[in-house]
């Protein structure tokens, strides 16, 4: 039953695929046998990612895309179908990480709020809308939306990131319910704190320096997400839909209580 974890010949579209967690998912999907359409706003990182996939012997294209523009989201899916003939997997990973920098609510402009919604939530909706029809027509498809632990818990002064990532989980549930009858599944990956090379210094300063407060005692590494993305992209997850798959060092299970501290309380008489 483990051969269902192979992606041999599948076609996957990954947004935000040139850097960070997106790049790591691209690498693992290619290792599992998938061909890739790598999307991102900047051409340099996505072309380099596509070259890496081709060096592994898989086919790949790089498609410069700003997912907040629905015409570009449509063009991305069209480009993948034109090149590969089909789309089996869509990973909505693109997000403005800059809006995870804590900002007091009174300092957030209309434009700041809207820009984050446009990329993080509307972008995922546009790509899902473009990919779901061809997936439904072929009777199978996998939509994977990258949310965040901030999609399930609040963060101090982190408005847009929390709201859009929470929206991603709801988008996943509605997609799953609506597309189940067409053989298309939708699931969310919920990463906790996983520092990536792309994380700039201002964001890095806002993130925890170590995972000492987590049950695992350490932060995640980008490689952690690879096998989870491959599982959700593969037919091994065909009976799983509308769900979240969390990689967070145990943070959500226990909350942010410092680990190692716990009182012992004797049984009452």
């Amino acid at each position: 039953m483990l051969d269902r974890l192979s992606l041999d010949g599948r076609v996957a579209v990954v947004t935000g695929g040139g850097t960070g967690l997106g790049l790591e998912m691209v690498r693992h999907l290619a290792r599992a046998g998938a061909n890739l359409a790598v999307a991102g706003r900047r051409s340099g990182p996505i072309e380099s990612a596509a070259d890496e996939v081709k060096a592994m012997g898989q086919d790949a294209i790089a498609v410069s895309t700003d997912v907040s523009d629905s015409a570009q989201a449509n063009a991305l899916i069209d480009a993948a179908i034109q090149h590969f003939g089909r789309v089996d997997v869509l990973i909505n990973n693109a997000a403005l990480v800059s809006d995870s920098i804590p900002t007091p609510i009174w300092d957030i402009s209309d434009q700041d709020w809207q820009a984050a919604l446009d990329v993080n939530l509307s972008g995922a909706f546009y790509c899902a809308r473009a990919a779901s029809k061809p997936m439904a027509d072929q009777g199978q498809g996998k939509i994977i939306n990258v949310s965040s632990g901030f999609g399930l818990r609040g963060g101090r002064d982190i408005y847009m990131y929390c709201c859009t990532k929470g929206g991603i989980i709801q988008l996943t549930r509605v997609l799953s319910f609506s597309l189940a009858r067409y053989g298309v599944t939708a699931n969310s990956i919920v990463p906790g704190f996983i520092p990536t090379v792309g994380t700039d210094s201002e964001i890095r300063d806002a993130l925890p320096r170590s995972g000492a407060y987590l049950p695992t005692g350490k932060l995640g590494v980008p490689e952690d997400i690879g096998p989870v993305a491959v599982f959700l992209a593969s037919s091994a997850s065909d009976y799983m839909t509308g769900e979240t798959f969390t990689l967070d060092g145990g943070g959500l299970a226990g909350g942010l209580a410092p680990t190692g501290y716990a009182p012992e309380i004797p049984l009452e008489p």
């Binding site: 996943t172 799953s176 319910f177 952690d224 096998p227 799983m240 509308g242 769900e243 798959f245």
Partner: peptide, 24 residues
């Protein structure tokens, strides 16, 4: 996967494989 060494950062989580029951 959940039994493997690679499952290093996921812990304390339920993963539901239920045909979508839990999401609707």
């Amino acid at each position: 996967y959940l039994c493997s060494e690679a499952c290093d950062y996921t812990t304390g989580q339920p993963v539901y494989v239920d045909g979508g029951l839990n999401a609707h």
